[in-house]
Simulated scan of single mutants.
Amino acid sequence: METMPERNIEFGLYGAQGIKGHEAVARRLDDLAGYVATPITARRGLLARLHYLTRSDRSRDRARDAGLTVTDRTLKAWLEGRRSPSRANLARIERAYRAVRRENVARYLTARLNRAGRGTRIEIHPLNQSQVDRPRQRVVDYRTMNIRHWDRLVQAWAAGDERDLDDAWVDQIVDLGSQWGSTSTSPTWASRPD
């Protein structure tokens, strides 16, 4: 197995711009998760998140596990509009909401992306090397590949485990060869998953 550069050198050391491949995968999975679009700072966005986190005892337990440890009385006051969460509590609500939402949609996303063994085709683009000195630039074209097994990627994303997500991503792209082992990559979906 080849070693990916983001693991053994400083990412972007010579001026290349972009994000690591596993971070791009996480962003795309976040897009597919369908989070509430209204910001949490708007009353409607706050209520949507609170209702999602309090709709059942199981949801409340999972929200507590994700770091939302306020009392039921406080939650009720927020829902009724008698009190407003502090900035720190807004951040906790958002983190808990995203964690619970990822956990809830993980199985659906895995099935959707695996497509009964057909997988999902993605495009992989190299980092932007326009700011890198010519002798250090590498010629790397974008590639497409079909990922058939999304289980480990989605599981690591749902758990919020960045290291495991990185490992799972590297396991998927290692077959692209030395051209892609020489530069970090950023995936985008070539077509919307069915």
Results as ranks from 00 to 15, higher is better:
residue 7 R to P: 04
residue 23 E to I: 01
residue 43 R to H: 09
residue 50 L to R: 10
residue 137 Q to D: 15
residue 125 H to Y: 12
residue 13 L to N: 02
residue 51 H to N: 01
residue 6 E to N: 07
residue 165 L to E: 08
residue 185 T to W: 04
residue 125 H to D: 10
residue 189 W to Q: 06
residue 18 G to S: 04
residue 98 R to C: 09
residue 184 S to K: 03
residue 11 F to V: 02
residue 38 T to L: 10
residue 78 W to Y: 09
residue 171 D to K: 15
residue 155 Q to P: 09
residue 167 D to L: 08
residue 3 T to P: 05
residue 147 I to C: 14
residue 169 W to F: 12
residue 131 Q to H: 10
residue 3 T to C: 12
residue 168 A to N: 03
residue 4 M to S: 12
residue 120 T to E: 14
residue 88 A to Y: 09
residue 76 K to A: 13
residue 80 E to G: 14
residue 189 W to I: 05
residue 12 G to I: 03
residue 183 T to K: 01
residue 23 E to V: 01
residue 11 F to Y: 10
residue 62 R to T: 08
residue 37 A to N: 00
residue 34 G to H: 14
residue 190 A to E: 02
residue 50 L to Q: 10
residue 110 T to W: 10
residue 88 A to H: 09
residue 164 D to A: 14
residue 96 A to D: 09
residue 119 G to Q: 13
residue 34 G to V: 15
residue 50 L to N: 02
residue 8 N to M: 08
residue 46 L to H: 04
residue 160 G to A: 07
residue 164 D to E: 14
residue 25 V to N: 11
residue 39 P to S: 07
residue 71 T to V: 05
residue 189 W to A: 04
residue 173 I to L: 13
residue 102 R to I: 11
residue 193 P to H: 02
residue 180 W to D: 10
residue 194 D to C: 00
residue 192 R to P: 12
residue 74 T to M: 12
residue 194 D to R: 05
residue 3 T to S: 01
residue 32 L to V: 11
residue 177 G to Y: 05
residue 4 M to T: 05
residue 76 K to Y: 00
residue 113 L to I: 08
residue 178 S to H: 03
residue 23 E to T: 06
residue 173 I to E: 09
residue 14 Y to N: 03
residue 31 D to E: 07
residue 142 Y to H: 15
residue 26 A to C: 08
residue 64 R to I: 00
residue 4 M to R: 15
residue 59 S to G: 05
residue 152 R to E: 15
residue 49 R to P: 00
residue 52 Y to C: 04
residue 181 G to D: 05
residue 29 L to C: 05
residue 137 Q to C: 13
